[in-house]
Design a binder for these strands. Structure first.
Lengths: 205, 205
DNA sequence: CCCTTGACCGACCGAGCGTCCGGTCTATAA
DNA sequence: TTATAGACCGGACGCTCGGTCGGTCAAGGG
């Protein structure tokens, strides 16, 4: 009998946090169960009590990871009023010194790498993308409702925008010597403006 | 004394081909030296005779891989005359049934995943990008020389274009249910047209 | 005909890994 | 107080893999 009924939830969170921490500086391939157990102040056996395999644990960790990211992005989008500015304003994701960013990208690359062969991880990746698409679609609809954008299909446009964001961010992250923050931000903004240009209704004077 | 002096080159090519083949359906993490050796019709010892470590072999293989891709892309670009059409015309890279494409993307994701932590692979990734940038910059310069584009900095634009291409292609490859060929091609073309629009000189009637 | 050289073999080693499992401890129920 | 169940421990097991190393064989030089 568990003394505290929520113990399982607490432990799972504790383990997942430790997994993300370990993953962040070791990577998917080199993170071991022993290391994760140690980071969670637990033994390998205790860890196995809550997650029966490494795969299961990693999938739970990755799911938790993108939940974290979206909480954050959504909060930031809420602070901006103008829909176009919202679309253009993901600068916080180009913050090199932010720990979330620093280990978030490698984690995403790990997921993509595995997804190249494993359908289950492909689903994880799709869900990651879907979150972005939902967020961006909502912003586009806001713009249409406010009479700022002329009618367009929100979802394909949202997918295009997020794909462009990901492409630019990947370069910036993996080859920063050749892709400065300025380049990344300018590239992203120019590309999005170019895409949205046909749909932006000139503001009345 | 080797009976054929070029034997070493032949063997290295043979091994690298086998490595790419093995990598293509096993992935970086799960491809073993024994398997590669078998694919090269050779023993582990023979393999070790030419490549002293797995890392060394993989780096050579990846370098060869992007040489292959660029030979191909360059040849295809040569077939098109109009510079803008060249920029817009990488459709062969959205060919799902092409074996080069089918295993090329996973290989690139593997490289990116390792590059997230390993500076040597980061350099490999940079070189991969640089190849694209050189190719695209040349096309942009052609357009400027031909009076089709007004003056612009070719390199940053080339980097933006290739980043967008990569972002779109990644989605198309990893989440094809949600990102059709039509979506990918339209997204890429629309984005590039939007970027280039300010620099396209209206053709005289 | 022997000796050297280099290509190549494949059994083996040792490290590292995920998983399993017998056991211990603690808290509740009887 | 005793019994029981679940939480957790940590060593052992089995396996895989990269790298090594003594050996074989064929070709050419002396």
């Amino acid at each position: 009998m568990p003394p505290i009924p929520e113990l399982e939830e607490i432990r799972r969170k504790q383990i997942i946090d430790a997994t993300l921490l370990t993953l962040s500086h070791k990577g998917y391939a080199k993170a071991t169960m022993a290391e994760i157990a140690a980071a969670a102040n637990m033994s390998k056996g205790g860890l196995a009590h809550y997650f029966q395999s490494k795969q299961e644990l990693f999938k739970a960790a990755f799911t938790e990871f993108y939940r974290l990211i979206f909480d954050r992005v959504e909060r930031e989008a809420d602070l901006i009023d103008d829909p176009l500015d919202k679309l253009l304003g993901f600068e916080s994701l180009f913050a090199a010194d932010d720990p979330d960013v620093e280990w978030g990208y490698p984690l995403l690359f790990d997921c993509m790498s595995v997804a190249g062969r494993d359908p289950e991880y492909r689903t994880l990746f799709s869900r990651w993308v879907d979150n972005w698409v939902v967020l961006l679609s909502r912003i586009i609809r806001e713009g249409m409702d406010a009479g700022l954008f002329s009618p367009l299909e929100p979802e394909p446009m949202a997918r295009t925008i997020s794909a462009i964001y990901q492409g630019v961010a990947t370069r910036w992250f993996l080859a920063p010597e050749d892709h400065s923050y300025e380049w990344a931000f300018h590239s992203y903004q120019t590309a999005i403006r170019g895409l949205m240009a046909p749909y932006i209704i000139a503001n009345q004077p």
